[in-house]
């Protein structure tokens, strides 16, 4: 499945998705309460060395993490002005550590393993009528629908252009009605194939 996963065979790649997710949750909670810059810098160093352990090329690591840089700098600037440079540095380090570690989990875990871990985590919700195994089907349907919507959008645009409409808000309405009809047809097809009963 297409994802942000970076394949590899390191110990980080081999440890189970659930363990990695729980560790991440625990570590990011602790990091949140840390104030000491030396400990935070140590955490950053540790996170960086874990990337080396996982064998993630630095380019991939940087590409994954640059998205949060502008907003982090903005928050650091605000902290500097409002509180102190110490607070600004702490914020910057804290966000850097958490984001680097979270991205490391994403990079070392195949999307399918993540889905399995999520299905397992949703297990307790079974008693509220949620069936975790349907989550997998829902994800598969979503990925299938993406090119369908894109294609329908192209067709609607084409039809409107043929009638001399250049751009119109009316574009979204036919697109939604068309694709909703298709979704309903697909739901009926699922029922017709007895999917409902086989998933019990």
């Amino acid at each position: 499945m297409l994802g942000l996963h970076h394949p590899g065979h390191s110990p980080l790649h081999r440890s189970p998705a659930g363990v990695k997710l729980l560790t991440l949750l625990a570590v990011s909670t602790v990091v949140f309460f840390l104030e000491d810059l030396r400990i935070l810098a140590g955490g950053l160093l540790l996170a960086g060395s874990l990337y080396a352990v996982a064998g993630i090329p630095w380019r991939t690591a940087v590409r994954q993490s640059t998205a949060v840089v502008p907003v982090t700098l903005l928050f650091m600037a605000a902290q500097w002005v409002l509180v102190s440079w110490h607070a600004a540095a702490a914020i910057g380090l804290r966000i850097a550590v958490v984001v680097l570690l979270a991205n490391l989990v994403t990079l070392t875990t195949p999307t399918s393993d993540m889905i399995t871990a999520v299905e397992r985590a949703l297990g307790p919700l079974r008693r509220f009528g949620l069936r975790p195994e349907r989550v997998g089907l829902a994800i598969a349907l979503t990925i299938r629908f993406v090119p369908v919507i894109a294609e329908q959008a192209r067709l609607v645009r084409q039809a409107q252009r043929a009638r001399g409409v250049r751009f119109s808000l009316a574009f979204l309405t036919p697109l939604l009605v068309r694709t909703l009809r298709m979704a309903d047809g697909l739901g009926e097809a699922l029922d017709a194939r007895g999917w409902e009963s086989s998933a019990q």
């Binding site: 994802g3 907003v71 966000i95 984001v99 994800i139």
Partner: peptide
């Protein structure tokens, strides 16, 4: 859920847990 499991579905091909745990 697609974001959390690491599919690049946010604008600019972003995704993954880093975005969720970040400031936004």
């Amino acid at each position: 859920l697609l974001v959390v499991v690491g599919l690049p579905v946010l604008p600019g091909g972003r995704g993954g847990l880093g975005v969720i745990l970040g400031p936004t």
